[in-house]
């Protein structure tokens, strides 16, 4: 499985990234992608813009761990995650997760797994600009529930950094 992670402040083009992922990969029968878009409303308020912050270094490690776990659970050909940081406007892609596999079942499952885990484990924070001013977005219980559906994995064990780090050093 080849995988890559990218955090960028530049706009994200989901189409060119997907083309790149499948280029030359004629053994893959399935490409499944998820694109998260910036909504212009949240909790009943208009949202004019957004600022995305992250924890440089930890973000990449957390994402690597999630992709490794996906690679253990399903037979995948490739996984790519690209996440925006900085200033965003309504309609902008925030995140792209794309997965290739020989068959669609594994690609669908792995793609959903990666975005569910990213939502609760990767250190990103959103600040919304509403007509009333700025506010930090609060974490949702529905995201925690979505993660729990997948059951415990080896990345689940908080407080066991040594074992988790051993996996990370293998690289991707």
């Amino acid at each position: 499985m080849h995988s890559s992670i990218q955090i960028q402040s530049e706009p994200l083009d989901p189409w060119s990234i997907q083309r790149e992922l499948v280029s030359g990969q004629t053994g893959s029968g399935a490409l499944v992608s998820f694109v998260g878009l910036m909504r212009d409303f949240n909790q009943g308020d208009a949202v004019l813009g957004m600022e995305l912050e992250h924890y440089p270094g930890m973000t990449e490690k957390a994402l690597e761990r999630i992709l490794e776990e996906a690679g253990r659970r399903w037979r995948l050909d490739g996984v790519r995650v690209v996440h925006r940081i900085g200033a965003l406007h309504p309609g902008d892609p925030i995140v792209l997760v794309c997965v290739t596999s020989a068959h669609r079942g594994e690609a669908f499952a792995a793609c959903e797994f990666v975005i569910d885990y990213l939502k609760t484990r990767a250190p990103f924070w959103k600040k919304e600009l509403t007509p009333a001013g700025e506010r930090w977005v609060e974490a949702r219980e529905s995201d925690a529930r979505a993660e729990r559906r997948w059951g415990s994995g080896s990345t689940e064990d908080e407080g066991l950094p040594a074992t988790r780090r051993a996996g990370a050093e293998k690289g991707l």
């Binding site: 998260g36 930890m58 996440h83 939502k119 990767a122 990103f124």
Partner: peptide, 20 residues
């Protein structure tokens, strides 16, 4: 809570994450 912190370590504190 029980994770050890040693000299030279980096410790980050943050609210629940909201990416994606």
């Amino acid at each position: 809570p029980g994770t050890q912190v040693r000299d030279g370590d980096e410790v980050g504190f943050f609210p629940p994450v909201t990416g994606g």
